[in-house]
Design a protein around this nucleic acid. Sequence first.
DNA 1: AGGCTTGATTAAAACGTAACAACCAAATAT
DNA 2: ATATTTGGTTGTTACGTTTTAATCAAGCCT
Lengths: 332, 332
Amino acid sequence: MTVVSIKEVAQHAGVSPGTVSNVLNRPEKVAAATRDRVQASIRELGFVRHGSASSLRAGHSRTIGLSVIDIGNPFFTDVASGVEDVASERGYAVILSNSAGDPGKESRNLLTLAEHRVRGVLITPAAEDTSRLDRLRDRGIRVVMVDHPSDRSDRCSVAVNDVAGGALAVSHLLTGGCDRVAYVSGPLTIRQCLDRKLGAHRALIRAGRDPEMVEVVTPAMTARAGQQAAEELLAAGLPDAIFCANDLLALGMLRALLQAGVRVPDDVSLIGYDGIDLAFASPVSLSTIKQPMQQLGRTAAELLLDECDNPGSHDHQQIMFQPELTVRESTR
Amino acid sequence: MTVVSIKEVAQHAGVSPGTVSNVLNRPEKVAAATRDRVQASIRELGFVRHGSASSLRAGHSRTIGLSVIDIGNPFFTDVASGVEDVASERGYAVILSNSAGDPGKESRNLLTLAEHRVRGVLITPAAEDTSRLDRLRDRGIRVVMVDHPSDRSDRCSVAVNDVAGGALAVSHLLTGGCDRVAYVSGPLTIRQCLDRKLGAHRALIRAGRDPEMVEVVTPAMTARAGQQAAEELLAAGLPDAIFCANDLLALGMLRALLQAGVRVPDDVSLIGYDGIDLAFASPVSLSTIKQPMQQLGRTAAELLLDECDNPGSHDHQQIMFQPELTVRESTR
DNA sequence: AGGCTTGATTAAAACGTAACAACCAAATAT
DNA sequence: ATATTTGGTTGTTACGTTTTAATCAAGCCT
């Protein structure tokens, strides 16, 4: 339980505490000989910088917060892994918090992040109202929105064009000769679901079809919910194409359809959204709209850290990636 | 960018800074009237405690570290979600770090955690050598091992009996009438893979069979690796039962088998390990050995926080959960 | 030789909070 | 009436670091 402080290192190396601090933070300012001596002492005593003291004095920490809607969803896992990569490359730590889609829990988590004086927050907001984010910014905590376009130009955001993705999915289904398309959506409070539906609508209109789709709304975007949605669809009479708001829903749907004796894609075409690894490995591999998930996380983290490290020259960007259609076996 | 300190709150409420601190940390010590007044000021000024200052002074932070081997694996995602739950209930933040199985990266991450003076670390170690963990403890950072039994009684650990799990899997296969069992393993540096194999061995011996199994070793425990393993197995001649070291491998295997025209379970029985959600949703639902993943995370976090909050009365526990066989469609 | 620059080092003052001893008034005990 | 306890509040110090201004020595210029 020995805590070695900068002071003891200084004493051991025969210099002042200030010099040790300089070795740590601006090594070029100190003569090579003393620098080596100090570094030797650091190693010998096993000193590690006290982050709390450091950030108290310096006025900022080397931590960022990451607030996601569902850590169990491979989409966010991939995003998180991209964030973690960039952060650890640049010596930042990531505090993870999971809102579980609950704006109340999200707010409480943001308070915890504020207490930790994180340098900034990457957030996929659980609700459309962004006033909480403004309050964070008033406290000097930068905010980058992830998988959600910013409505304002004074904030960075990284998103993927969900309207385009929805259109891509449905026009692929139509091209394959499908006629009646059903949309399996997650909760309607989730922007992504609404945008993808809007895109689907547009594609239908563009093709001169009736824009009305059968729609099933699930309470969660999980495989289990997808299976339940399948039952609803089977009871109501199957369409000849199904567009699921994400891959997990689609995988659950696929399972239930096959089990009910429905052939995919012969009887019904099925397309998912995200491009998670498992969508490829499913026994009938899943056509999907692929999003650059890791890239999303990496870019968001880079924007945030750039804003933190160069507050002067930084200009806010609203980045919008384009999703890509990946055709596999589940669509004709 | 206004930073409200305890001092300004004190001034606003007409009390001393010390009283504000008391309201924050031992509200029972301060008269109801002043307490209310201070709390009103806190709300009005939008004060939030400066975590760095607090932990500098108090000597300990309200953060724990979580170091996992692969954040992309649903197993660890579930564990993480259990940890996050408990931590956020008790006001702790979780710093996530991903070793990606690389002991070097793990060490670097642990250094970052040490700098942040986390209260403790939950870790699924990437290597058997635990001296790094001892060094952490010398620094006053408690360590709880997750999904890895502790070799020593002075440390908490939470694990699942992998030997029993391996035996469970293989004896189920044998009960179903299988004869030649193959084992698809992850990297042999991973203890879990070795233990599950050992269990498989034991089950074979107990049943009076030849304990030698065909074994395929994959470089990673992913669905993709499972598909590749299937090709190897198909080329070498199929056994009549396959035990995969985790569900992701099994799902990839399942996909490749079905695609090659192999019927599951008629031609070959297949069993996985973990019990991830998707194993249920796969078109031929996967028999598996279910582990209490969230529970693992919750328990580990509870042990750690108990050790932190009651250092006197805490006694170290090595908890070992028992895995459960879940029979579904992929085995006969 | 005296004044100047340069480069390296140090002393001291913060940063915002927690904890402890000291203090004070009011209530109780003697 | 005085002494003692009690409940509530405050002043002060310390936590480990960063930073700024100040100091010092050595080299250079005229």
